[in-house]
Amino acid sequence: TIEDAIKKLLKLAQKGQPYTFGDFTVTSEEEAKKLAKWLKKQL
């Protein structure tokens, strides 16, 4: 689910690992949080 993807994304971001989700490449926890907010709006 999208919720699971968001959780995984935040965990990876906390470890400092870049994470690619579709067109987004997230390289920081701050970016992960922005992406998570955006994804929730898409639901």
Rank of each mutant, 00 (worst) to 15 (best):
T27M: 06
L9T: 00
Q42M: 11
K37M: 06
G16A: 05
E31T: 07
Q14G: 11
F21L: 03
L12I: 07
K7C: 10
I2H: 02
K34D: 04
A5L: 15
L12T: 04
K33C: 15
K7S: 05
K40Q: 14
Y19G: 13
L35Y: 01
D4M: 09
K8D: 04
I6L: 11
G22V: 11
T1S: 07
L39Y: 01
L35S: 00
L9G: 00
I2W: 13
Q14H: 05
E30L: 09
E31Y: 11
Q42H: 05
G16I: 08
F24A: 02
K41Y: 12
Q17V: 15
A13C: 13
I2T: 02
Q42L: 12
K8C: 15
L12N: 07
K40I: 13
D4G: 09
K8N: 09
T27V: 12
K15T: 12
T1L: 13
A5G: 02
G16V: 11
A5T: 11
T1Q: 06
L43V: 08
T25C: 06
D23T: 09
I2G: 01
K8S: 05
Q14V: 10
L39M: 03
T27S: 06
K33G: 03
E3T: 05
K8R: 05
T20A: 04
L35D: 00
I2N: 01
D23E: 11
Q42T: 08
D4E: 11
E31H: 07
K33A: 06
Q17M: 15
E31P: 02
T1R: 10
S28P: 05
K37L: 10
K11D: 13
L9R: 00
K8P: 01
K34T: 05
Q14D: 07
T27P: 03
V26C: 15
G22I: 11
E3L: 13
K11R: 08
L9E: 00
K34C: 15
I2C: 12
I6G: 00
L43H: 06
F24P: 04
K37V: 08
I6Q: 00
D4I: 05
D23A: 10
T1D: 08
K41W: 12
A5Q: 07
K41A: 11
F21C: 15
G16K: 03
E31Q: 07
E29H: 10
S28Y: 06
E3M: 14
A32L: 09
L9P: 00
L35H: 00
T27N: 07
K33S: 07
V26W: 05
G22L: 12
K15H: 08
L9W: 03
L9N: 01
L35P: 00
V26P: 02
Q14C: 15
I2Y: 09
F21E: 06
A36L: 15
E31A: 08
K11T: 09
A13P: 02
P18I: 12
Y19E: 09
K41T: 07
K41M: 12
S28Q: 02
W38P: 00
Y19L: 14
E30R: 05
K37R: 08
L39F: 03
L12P: 02
G22A: 06
K37Y: 08
K40Y: 14
P18S: 07
F21K: 01
A36N: 02
A5P: 01
L35I: 04
F21W: 13
W38T: 01
K15N: 10
K41E: 11
K7W: 07
Y19W: 11
V26I: 13
E3R: 12
F21M: 04
G16R: 03
K40T: 11
T25R: 03
K15P: 03
K33E: 08
Q14W: 14
L43C: 05
K7A: 06
Y19S: 09
E31N: 04
L10F: 06
Q17E: 14
K33Y: 10
G22C: 15
K41G: 06
E31D: 12
Q17P: 15
S28W: 12
D4P: 01
P18A: 06
P18Y: 11
F24S: 02
E30I: 07
A32D: 01
T25V: 10
L39K: 00
E30H: 07
K11V: 12
K11S: 10
Q42F: 13
T25F: 13
G22Q: 08
Q17A: 09
Y19D: 06
A36W: 14
K34S: 06
G22D: 08
K7Y: 04
V26R: 01
E31W: 15
K37W: 05
P18G: 12
E3P: 07
E3K: 10
A5D: 02
Q14M: 14
Q14A: 14
L9Y: 03
K37D: 13
K8Y: 09
Q42D: 01
G16L: 12
P18L: 11
A36E: 06
T25P: 04
K11C: 14
A36M: 09
G22F: 14
T25K: 05
L35M: 02
Q42I: 12
K41S: 11
L10I: 12
L39Q: 00
D4H: 05
K11H: 12
K40E: 13
T20V: 11
W38V: 02
A13G: 09
T27I: 12
A13K: 03
L39D: 00
T25G: 06
A32V: 07
E3W: 14
K11L: 13
Y19A: 13
P18K: 09
K33M: 11
I2V: 11
Q17N: 12
K41P: 01
G16W: 12
K33F: 08
T25S: 04
W38A: 02
A5F: 15
E31I: 14
K37E: 14
P18R: 06
F21A: 03
Y19M: 09
K40S: 13
K8Q: 08
K8E: 09
K40G: 07
Y19N: 08
I2M: 04
L10M: 10
S28L: 12
P18C: 15
E30Q: 08
G22T: 06
A36P: 01
D23H: 05
G16H: 07
W38S: 03
W38I: 04
A32K: 03
K15D: 10
T25E: 05
D23N: 07
A32M: 12
K34H: 05
D23C: 15
D4C: 15
K34Q: 10
